[in-house]
Design a protein around this nucleic acid. Structure first.
Length: 296
DNA sequence: AAGCAGAGCAACCGCGGGTGG
DNA sequence: GCCACCCGCGGTTGCTCTGCT
């Protein structure tokens, strides 16, 4: 890189290194943190003999070296949670990351920017527009729920028992709901599109720690990138993007979204009623979980 | 095979909040 | 109350890899 590496024994103030971390630097940092713990990053950088800023050390540790950091594609559950929490908190990446064990704010932020914003751009929608939010609420999120449910129902899938307890029921919007109160939400001039979706997904405590990307292999338009070892679970890929493009171009009223009616009583033992038919029938949706309630 | 463009991700930067002197 | 320092967060940049032509 452009910076100069100097031996730690050199007494002079050395050039600070920038750019990608080397294996040696990683080992130094990880070893020092293991021995002395996190925090006081500037002091740590000096004591460990790293020619890095404290900020850089902290970032490297949190985003890469931390033992519990989890890598790989986001599962449908994680995608749904990201969408859900972004509705609630906006670009509060670190806050969102707290709800996804093993995932970093940087990773989530990158996901949002590379996947979600990319597709918003493809649809000629602003990612923060009500139009795009409606598409996410009424198309993407139900589809994710469907996939989560489908995965949990597959008897041969190893993680079937870890499916989230997802309930969905029709519910009127909470009066104090920020989303319900947002002006311009009814872009399609349809009152049914004004439904304020309260989504809520409960994950078993161990759920997000495991790599449960199974079941995504045959999703149409799934793309491979990077080392090619992972297959995307991106719900916006391929034909789905085309559908959404039509939705944005024509307006929700003129597009028949798939009816993600899933059979009742067909899921795991925790399954209740879940259907997006509320969208078509003019009622609001709510996903309930056994743990807490999210109201918009 | 080479060049190009786009996607994804790691890392950096600037700012604001918190804390201690 | 003020200042300096540290930490954490969100936004941005730039490098690397892949696929396409």
């Amino acid at each position: 890189m452009d910076a100069i590496w100097m031996e730690p024994s050199c007494g002079r103030a050395a050039e600070l290194r920038r750019g990608p971390w080397t294996v040696e630097e990683d080992a130094l940092l990880a070893g020092y943190v293991a021995a002395h713990g996190e925090g006081r990053w500037n002091e740590l950088a000096l004591a460990a003999g790293l020619r890095r800023t404290g900020k850089s050390c902290r970032l490297r540790w949190l985003n890469y070296l931390r033992p519990d950091v989890r890598r790989g594609d986001f599962t449908p559950r994680e995608q749904l949670l990201i969408l859900e929490l972004h509705f609630r908190w906006g670009n509060r990446w670190s806050k969102i990351a707290q709800e996804l064990p093993g995932r970093t704010d940087n990773e989530i932020k990158n996901y949002w920017r590379t996947r979600v914003q990319k597709h918003a751009k493809q649809l000629n929608c602003d990612v923060n527009s009500d139009q795009f939010r409606d598409v996410m609420r009424h198309v993407w999120m139900p589809r994710l729920l469907e996939r989560i449910q489908a995965t949990s129902m597959a008897p041969s899938v190893e993680h079937a028992e870890s499916s989230p307890a997802v309930y969905l029921m029709k519910k009127s919007a909470a009066p104090n709901s920020p989303l319900a109160g947002r002006s311009g939400m009814c872009h399609s001039s349809s009152s049914r599109a004004c439904s304020s979706v309260s989504l809520e997904v409960q994950f078993p405590s161990n759920q997000l720690v495991m790599n449960d990307a199974g079941g995504a292999a045959d999703w149409p338009g799934s793309e491979r990138r990077g080392n090619g070892s992972a297959q995307s679970d991106d719900m916006f890929d391929g034909s789905w993007s085309e559908l959404l493009a039509r939705a944005c171009e024509d307006g929700a009223d003129s597009v028949l979204f798939p009816d993600f009616e899933l059979g009742q009583d067909t899921a795991d033992t925790t399954s209740g009623v879940w259907s997006t038919s509320g969208y078509n029938s003019g009622t609001d949706l709510q996903v309930l979980s056994a743990s807490s309630s999210y109201y918009y």
